[in-house]
Amino acid sequence: MEIRLGQLEHPAVIALLTQHHQEMLRHSPPESVHALDLSALAAPDITFLSSWHQQELAGCGALKQLNPWHGEIKSMRTANKFLRTGVAQTLLKHIIAEAESRGYQRLSLETGTLAAFAPAQKLYQAFGFDYCPPFADYQEDPYSTFMTKELTPNSQ
C-alpha cells in the first residue's frame, strides 16, 4: 500500500469523497455534517492523503492544523472494496506520525453518533483516542461525538 500526498484532482478521489459526503448526509442532517468539500480540503492548513493499492484508490484522510499544537483528522474514508483490510489503520498511523513530526501535542476528530459510525469510533479508541467535549469551532450536537488523543511530539 502506498500513501500519496494530495491527489485531490484524481477522479477516483473525487468519487470517494463524493460518496463519503453522501453517506454522511444519509446518517446526519446537513447542519450536522462536517465533511469538507474538495476546495476546503485543498486549503493550505490541510494535508490530504490518499492510500493506493497498486493503481486503485483504497482510502483517504486529511490532517488539519488547528494551531501549532493541535491537529484534526478530517475526511477519513476507506473505499468499499478495501473495508476491513487495514487501510484505515495504515492511514491513521500515518496521520498520527505526521502530527507528531509537526510537534502537535493533541490530535482530535469529530465523527457521528449513530450505529453506522461505531466502526470508526472503535478504530479511534484502539489507537488511544478518548471521548472529549467539542473542540475548535464545534458545538454540542446529538449527531456528533468528539475524540482526542494526547501526542508525544517528535524532537525537531
Score class of each variant (00 low, 15 high):
residue 146 F to G: 07
residue 116 A to H: 11
residue 110 E to G: 08
residue 113 T to G: 15
residue 54 Q to M: 13
residue 127 F to Q: 10
residue 98 E to H: 07
residue 113 T to W: 00
residue 87 V to Y: 12
residue 63 L to S: 08
residue 107 L to Y: 04
residue 54 Q to R: 12
residue 116 A to L: 07
residue 104 Y to L: 05
residue 80 N to Q: 13
residue 112 G to S: 09
residue 131 Y to R: 02
residue 118 A to C: 13
residue 116 A to N: 11
residue 134 P to F: 07
residue 128 G to T: 01
residue 127 F to C: 14
residue 122 K to N: 02
residue 140 E to Q: 14
residue 75 S to Y: 06
residue 68 P to D: 15
residue 66 L to V: 13
residue 104 Y to D: 06
residue 105 Q to V: 07
residue 61 G to Q: 09
residue 64 K to F: 12
residue 103 G to Q: 13
residue 99 A to I: 05
residue 68 P to F: 03
residue 133 P to N: 04
residue 73 I to C: 09
residue 90 T to E: 09
residue 150 E to R: 05
residue 86 G to H: 04
residue 87 V to C: 15
residue 75 S to C: 10
residue 146 F to N: 01
residue 92 L to M: 13
residue 59 G to Y: 01
residue 64 K to V: 11
residue 140 E to V: 15
residue 151 L to S: 12
residue 70 H to W: 12
residue 143 Y to A: 10
residue 143 Y to K: 02
residue 138 Y to E: 01
residue 77 R to S: 10
residue 67 N to I: 07
residue 94 H to S: 12
residue 133 P to G: 12
residue 116 A to T: 09
residue 110 E to D: 02
residue 133 P to V: 09
residue 72 E to F: 11
residue 141 D to M: 04
residue 68 P to W: 02
residue 76 M to E: 06
residue 100 E to F: 01
residue 147 M to G: 03
residue 105 Q to K: 09
residue 93 K to Y: 04
residue 108 S to R: 08
residue 129 F to G: 07
residue 119 P to Y: 05
residue 83 L to H: 07
residue 135 F to V: 06
residue 104 Y to V: 04
